[in-house]
Design a protein around this nucleic acid. Sequence first.
DNA 1: TAAACGTGGGG
DNA 2: TCCCCAAGTTT
Length: 350
Amino acid sequence: MRDGKGPIGGSLLKWYDAHARVMPWRVSPADRAGGMRPDPYRVWLSEVMLQQTTVAAVRDYFHRFTERWPDVAALAAAEDADVMAQWAGLGYYARARNLLKCARVVADELSGQFPQTAPELQKLPGIGPYTAGAIAAIAFDAPVPVVDGNVERVVSRLFAVQTPLPTAKPELTELTAQITPDQRPGDFAQAMMDLGATICTPRNPACAICPLIGACAAQAQGIAADLPRKAAKKPKPTRHGFAYVAVNAAGDVLLERRPDKGLLGGTLGFPGSDWSETPSPAPPFEADWREAPAEVRHTFTHFHLHLRVLTAQVEGNDFTARAQFAPGDLPTLMRKVWDAAQSADLPLSG
DNA sequence: TAAACGTGGGG
DNA sequence: TCCCCAAGTTT
């Protein structure tokens, strides 16, 4: 079962050889067979970017990062602010902070070489069980289970696992280990994820064209679309707050960097109030603040946010120069705040 | 262990 | 409009 010729591994790899999705960080099955090895740096970078993030969203970010920082030494030498600016808009900003920490450990303490085993990889910042397994399997041919959301879904269907997530996670990891072949474990992992992304989808799985239909217990029982079972979700509360966009006569902007901990940690943005049910206005200074006509609405993982945007033109000389300021360097919430300030009929000369 | 942590696209 | 969810990790 672990020789790559088991009913599941063999069928899946055959399917993958014909249908593997093309991605900038991936070496095709044919090139891989020809001896080409994926660059561990690119595998690591892509896997971190792909955490809870779609392939479509990652593509451009991956290109920009690898163009600017082609290897781990280059990234390790980057300024924090430059990395945060390049990451802006991709979300989960702890990933960017840990990415830089990890690059510096690898560059400064590991001679620029990534560890080759999952347990060693998992000691690095921002690398958990999934990413450690993915790097070990894809970059270093380690036959370890690689379990992401796709694989949880595929395996729960293959074996008709009724235990709800996340309780089922250990069980699914064990089942994945049982079907992971010693040959081409990296391709197997990527094949499982491709299958989950394109055929064994959350809704309306395309069982009729699935290469594993003959091995799928859930399909046999007619319950594929009902798996995996999941624990009920909590409702999202709505919080409110104020944001302040101050601009001087030259168009320079008042920005502040948030502390590394917590929501949007380490990112650049506009000063504001607390976010709560009844926030207190918190202008950074006295001014003729005028409110933008439309509220900014934004939804985070665990709450909705409504922000009232206030703008003022003031005499500020410690602001960020307008030429230095690009809205694209801000997280999406703050881009929305900037846009709301622009759309208002307000004294903004930027 | 459960909660915190972003964003954009699809149904 | 709203909910789901996407190659999870950290605390």
